[in-house]
Amino acid sequence: MRFCELRQKEVINVRDCQRLGFVADIEFDPACGKICQLIIPGPGKLCGLFGRESECVIGWNCVRQIGTDIILVDVDGEMAQRRCGEGICKNG
């Protein structure tokens, strides 16, 4: 699967069925080449013109399934609105 294919998939939390958004970026380990985290932008400040307030950073181990048009993740709903750089997955 290519990154451009991941960007077309909506991320949905299986705990509360909340739509988290679409994948904007990924973080990977350059030593082994594995994906570490999915990065999903938060809502825009003013009609999306002045940047984003926050973004969701979801650990790859939180991904439960990748379908044809969605990615299912298992994350704590309250933590899904964390700021940039803070992982939100509680699963080891």
Rank of each mutant, 00 (worst) to 15 (best):
M1W: 01
M1N: 08
R2C: 02
F3N: 15
C4N: 15
E5T: 02
L6G: 13
L6D: 10
L6P: 13
R7S: 09
Q8V: 15
Q8F: 07
K9G: 06
E10C: 09
E10N: 11
V11S: 02
I12T: 11
I12A: 08
I12N: 10
N13M: 01
N13Q: 08
N13H: 06
N13G: 02
N13Y: 03
V14C: 02
V14A: 01
R15Q: 15
D16T: 10
C17A: 13
C17T: 13
Q18F: 12
R19V: 15
R19T: 13
R19D: 15
L20W: 07
G21S: 03
F22K: 12
F22G: 06
V23G: 05
V23Y: 00
V23E: 03
D25P: 01
I26Y: 06
I26T: 12
I26D: 04
E27M: 06
F28E: 08
F28P: 05
F28S: 10
F28V: 05
D29E: 08
D29V: 08
D29Y: 05
A31P: 11
A31Y: 08
C32S: 03
G33P: 01
G33Y: 01
G33W: 04
G33M: 01
K34G: 08
I35W: 05
I35C: 09
I35S: 01
Q37S: 15
Q37G: 07
Q37V: 07
L38E: 05
L38A: 03
I39P: 01
I39F: 05
I40S: 01
P41R: 11
P41Y: 11
P41N: 10
P41L: 12
P43Q: 06
P43G: 06
P43F: 07
G44L: 02
G44P: 10
L46I: 04
L46A: 12
C47H: 14
G48C: 13
G48I: 14
L49Q: 13
F50E: 12
G51Y: 03
R52L: 05
R52D: 07
S54R: 13
S54N: 09
V57K: 00
V57F: 02
V57W: 00
I58A: 02
G59M: 00
G59Q: 00
W60T: 08
W60S: 06
N61P: 03
V63I: 12
R64T: 14
R64Q: 15
Q65Y: 10
Q65C: 09
G67Y: 12
T68A: 15
D69F: 00
I70C: 15
I70M: 03
I70W: 11
I70L: 12
I71S: 07
I71V: 09
L72I: 15
V73R: 00
V73H: 02
V73D: 01
V73P: 00
D74G: 07
V75A: 00
D76E: 11
D76F: 02
D76R: 02
D76C: 07
D76I: 10
D76V: 12
D76G: 05
G77Q: 09
E78W: 07
E78N: 11
E78T: 11
E78C: 06
M79L: 13
M79T: 02
A80C: 11
A80W: 01
A80H: 00
Q81G: 10
R82I: 09
R83T: 13
R83E: 13
R83L: 13
R83N: 10
R83G: 09
G85N: 08
G85K: 13
G85Y: 11
E86P: 05
G87M: 14
I88H: 03
I88F: 07
C89K: 04
K90R: 06
K90I: 08
N91I: 08
G92N: 11
G92L: 11
